[in-house]
């Protein structure tokens, strides 16, 4: 019986300790907040790692690929390719896969040459210089791929008289697809036709793995720049048309690239 007070005291101390411990432990809300903060920290770390990876890839690509003039020269027309054209739902494509899709689309649309250039945080794909009609449709082969101005074909007396006294303007076009995660504007540099004609031969035949293995994340966009040149006659200089009479989307529709990308 002598131990009863000690038991009571022990009981009270135990209860007090239990209350103290329970009051000091984090509540469910605090645990939740903590979990969210941990997740954010992990996500931030991952984003930093990805950003670092991209920066390293960018640095490698900038040394191994020819550079596209940056910011891009002012274009005759521009159009942003809808994301759902490039990446189908539930797909997690790399830039390699996106490049392959566009190569396939260009090939199916009749384009035989294209090359790759470095742009900050991405790449640019440049099509071969082609001759087009005023409405944006490509000329028929072999005129289409001639970099020289082609006179109108003469097939009857009327067309002969027209060709004798008038010169039909020639139109040239290159299409540049820019895939980048960085926003950009246009520079003041006006690209001459000769430079545009040589671009396709100056670029890489493929993407380096450092760029190709990057995921085509939501940050990436594809902007198409169309550079159209008008040459009034055989002895006139070709002049960059700004703006083009045909809008950017119509250029891609008339070249059949739009329907190929949309497939």
């Amino acid at each position: 019986m002598k131990n009863i007070p000690f038991l009571k005291i022990g009981f009270i101390v135990s209860v007090a300790l239990a209350i103290c411990i329970s009051s000091c432990a984090p509540s469910a809300k605090e645990r939740e907040t903590s979990a969210v903060n941990d997740s954010i920290r992990v996500a931030d770390s991952l984003a930093m790692i990805q950003a670092e990876q991209q920066r390293i890839a960018d640095s490698i690509a900038s040394r191994t690929m020819p550079h596209f003039p940056w910011p891009p020269p002012p274009a005759s027309a521009s159009v942003k390719i809808p994301r759902n054209f490039i990446v189908k739902p539930n797909e997690n494509n790399t830039l390699f896969q996106v490049a392959r899709e566009f190569e396939s689309a260009l090939t199916n649309a009749g384009y035989v040459s294209f090359s790759y250039f470095y742009v900050p945080s991405g790449f640019a794909m440049v099509s071969q210089l082609e001759q087009i009609n005023a409405d944006g449709t490509p000329k028929t082969d072999p005129d289409r791929w001639s970099v020289q101005y082609q006179k109108a074909r003469v097939f009857d007396l009327k067309s002969y008289i027209t060709a004798l006294f008038t010169s039909r303007p020639g139109y040239f076009r290159i299409i540049v697809f820019i895939f980048t995660s960085e926003p950009f504007s246009e520079s003041g540099y006006k690209m001459p036709k000769d430079t545009a004609a040589k671009l396709v031969h100056a670029g890489n035949s493929d993407l380096p793995p450092a760029i190709g293995n990057i995921k085509f994340s939501a940050k990436f966009n594809c902007t198409t720049k169309i550079y159209e040149f008008e040459q009034k006659s055989m002895n006139s200089a070709a002049v960059l048309q700004i703006p083009s009479l045909v809008d950017g989307k119509q250029h891609l529709v008339k070249s059949k690239i739009w329907e190929e990308i949309a497939k």
Binding site: L164, F165, T166, S167, K232, S233, N235, S236, A237
Partner: peptide
């Protein structure tokens, strides 16, 4: 012929 080519369009362009 040459006069009309010069006058009507830029048949000879800059030349």
């Amino acid at each position: 012929i040459l006069f009309l080519q010069t006058l009507l369009t830029s048949y000879y362009g800059d030349k």
